[in-house]
Simulated assay, not measured.
Amino acid sequence: MAGEAYAVGQVAAEELDGAAEELAGLLVDTVHGGGSIGFLAPLGLAEAVAWWRALAPEVAAERLLLWTVRAEADGRLAGTIQLRRAVPTNGRHRGEVAKLMVHPADRGQRLAGRLLAVLEERAAELGLRLLVLDTETGSPAERLYEAAGWTRVGSVPDYATDPAGVAHPTTIFFKALGG
């Protein structure tokens, strides 16, 4: 919320179980608010909790890195982002950005940009040289990625559906991290 201080932190595998319900609430709110992040509405809280908990082995193996941003005053979850590291041996230099969500009450605080910057910095520390992502064409996220220096590759028609099941084009972006 306006003027509030926020802190970004990485979530360890052993913390994921305890955070799953709160993360699930953010996921459900995002999907029910129209966010095209891989789920159809209605999305139940139990299904969302199970989805988050199922990520624990990937987080433990560091194939998936997960960050949250929280309000410093009360620890309330304000957003999250994921980095999925490529598994094939010929792709260990790259990763995919996924599931960037900011709670509606916390939008306008540049939290998405902060989460993205933390992810990019950590990816570079891990030796990743290339990041990719996709987002719904025409969404506000496109402007975020362009402003953060991402390069638009192109658009794929009817790539994904929104939570109501309506197909939309998706824009693919990449960012070279140097090195």
Rank of each mutant, 00 (worst) to 15 (best):
P140L: 03
R94M: 10
E96K: 12
G108Q: 07
A117R: 14
S36V: 12
R84G: 12
G108A: 12
A54Q: 12
T161E: 12
T80V: 12
L55F: 13
A7D: 15
V87S: 08
V118D: 12
Y6E: 04
V11T: 06
G34T: 04
G95S: 07
V118W: 11
T151G: 05
L45S: 13
E120I: 04
E96M: 12
I37Q: 02
G95F: 00
V156R: 11
A56L: 08
L177E: 07
L133T: 00
F173Q: 01
A13T: 10
G108H: 06
A167I: 10
R122Y: 07
L45G: 09
T171V: 06
P157G: 08
A86R: 09
G91W: 07
L26G: 04
M101A: 15
G179F: 07
E58K: 15
P57M: 08
A5K: 15
G35F: 01
A141T: 13
G9I: 08
V31S: 01
G34P: 03
R110F: 09
H93M: 09
L116A: 03
E136C: 08
E125H: 15
H168W: 06
E121A: 15
G9W: 11
F173T: 04
A7C: 14
R114N: 09
H103A: 15
H103T: 02
T170I: 07
A124H: 14
G18A: 10
L128V: 03
E62P: 07
T89V: 12
A141W: 06
A73P: 06
T30L: 15
L100K: 00
L77G: 01
A61D: 15
L119Y: 11
T30D: 14
L23D: 01
